[in-house]
Amino acid sequence: MTILHETRPTVATAVVEIEHDGRWKPVCGYADLLPGRGVAVLLGAEQVALFRDRAGLLYAVGNTDPFSGSAVISRGIMGSRGAAPVVASPMYKQAFDLRTGECLDEAATPDGSPARLGVWPVRVVS
């Protein structure tokens, strides 16, 4: 579901947009994002974790960690597991596939709900 920008933006003024309720909403400057790190975005009542990887690709997933219930996914460390780009929750360290939101360590949380983050389309506009 995640839409990646096609060319690497070079303009310092490039803006990142996330699609929410059928509309593209600008959330921050591309330059505000540190490679390999995430930030949290507040969209209405929803929280999104937005990441930029070393190569410049962007991912947007839900910010709430299903295992702890805390909104902390954006503060996790990015990396890769095999071919999958992942973020590790800073709370109990489960890894989530940034493309699908799926947890790669456990299928369900201890209370039985699926261990999965939502995913949002994200793009960069110059």
């Binding site: 805390s70 503060r75 460390i77």
Partner: peptide, 19 residues
């Protein structure tokens, strides 16, 4: 280096259970 740090080192504080 900022991108390499655990959340604790990144925010120079200790993450607690509710975030």
């Amino acid at each position: 280096q900022a991108g390499l740090q655990d959340t604790n080192d990144h925010f120079l504080a200790n993450l607690q259970r509710n975030g």
